[in-house]
Design a protein around this nucleic acid. Structure first.
Lengths: 232, 232
DNA sequence: TACGTTTGTAAGTGATTACTCACATTACAT
DNA sequence: ATGTAATGTGAGTAATCACTTACAAACGTA
């Protein structure tokens, strides 16, 4: 135990992030091994602060106070503030997000029994729940990617190849049996992602107080992708 | 003239932003009236820095050096750093972006002579050129919106209402004459915007060194919206 | 119990921050 | 020419920044 015992100014695990933090912490521990209580609180506080105010506008001092920890303790566990940022986001790639996506794509594809519409609805609903769980981390990633080459490289390395490959494999059968016309998998992929992310940003960032019907929106997106706006 | 004459460390109007700055400066002057040479250079430098490093990570000191101006001069023209940010982005709304969009929607709609496909291609191509011209400002806006209530309010005030209304008016005839099925204009709007922005971000931020065929992509997007992926 | 390692702390460090102020120069109307 | 307001300067200023350091407590192991 430390020499003295400061108390956190903010109780752990409260606030708008809710239980999402737990999932993130779990992913983090899977990546870095077991953590001290204080280290875990630092990670929590950092995610909270970075997501809320942005990396550059967050002082290490603030993170320490929110975590109920001395400022020096942060630098006991993380070499620099930037190291903290990078290691926070890492679990999204290595074992966290990307392999999971590829895996679930395969599983859901088989479960859908060859019906593209069923498959897409399942995947999008799934991804929405995922995005909600990891929202703070994803926010940080998107926000800071432009300013930190390390993050950009991590994304460029793990994202496109895996996803492209998965989309390619998944789409092939549906094109073969005539459910959709031949289309570049890359275009298919970025269309789905654009529609999905566009809805997500609108729902959570631009008009968060409005009530949204996720299921209906997913159905609309799938219908748009498969049938367009042509009269039926 | 000033007491002493510092020289800019960076020549005006160079760099990756190219001539885009000129259009922005023009919009700014239309909003705030004529400017001193030094004030114009401060605006240029600020846009450059904010777009490149983000608001929080940019020091007023840096802006001054880039503009070839004493630091105090910035605060002669702008009350605070935040005031500088807010006033920079303002031209996008008041007289700049939003009314222009609504106006052009109407014009292009008439010119298309009732063919939705022609209309959408014209509008999207048009918007792409626009986005390229105002890219730095749009970048700043998107980046900082989450952290500054003033920006969020400006967007919420001027964007949705005008666009929603315009989309509503433009779509009605095409639904009436059976070119597309009845669809919520809001969904139509956010779908087009999502696909467009998704492509734009991919082209300019994620994979900027790759070569892109804007016209082909616009055609793909329009086809997707109108016909989906159904075999033809 | 003894002891080396890990974890934690409080009080710094110099550098950088946004912003001020007393003063100099310029523009312009008279 | 003269006076006044607008414009510009550069040396401050207190606050804040990321990070260090000297030391103490706690832990694992024997």
């Amino acid at each position: 135990m430390p020499a003295t015992k400061p108390t956190a100014e903010v109780p752990p695990n409260n606030g708008s992030l809710g239980g999402a933090i737990d999932a993130i912490i779990a992913a983090f521990e899977q990546e870095e091994g077991a953590m001290t209580d204080k280290k875990r609180r630092i990670v929590e506080a950092a995610i909270h602060c970075f997501a809320e105010k942005g990396y550059a506008a967050t002082a290490t001092n603030t993170i320490a106070r929110r975590a109920g920890v001395a400022e020096g303790t942060i630098f006991r566990h993380f070499e620099t503030k930037k190291d903290l940022l990078v290691r926070l986001v890492r679990p999204l790639f290595a074992r966290g997000l990307v392999p999971l996506v590829a895996e679930e794509l395969k599983i859901e594809s088989e479960r859908a029994g060859g019906d593209l519409r069923t498959f897409m609805r399942a995947i999008l609903g799934n991804r929405l729940a995922f995005a909600d769980r990891f929202a703070p981390l994803v926010r940080i990633l998107i926000q800071e990617m432009r300013f930190h080459a390390e993050l950009r490289e991590a994304v460029a390395e793990s994202f496109p190849a895996a996803l492209q490959q998965a989309a390619d494999r998944v789409l092939q059968p549906y094109i073969a049996n005539g459910q959709i016309r031949p289309v570049e998998p890359a275009f298919f992929l970025r269309s789905v992602i654009s529609l999905f992310v566009g809805y997500y940003v609108l729902r959570t960032e631009v008009l968060p107080m409005q009530t949204w019907d996720d299921e209906a929106e997913i159905a609309r997106i799938v219908d748009l992708m498969l049938d367009g706006l042509r009269p039926r």
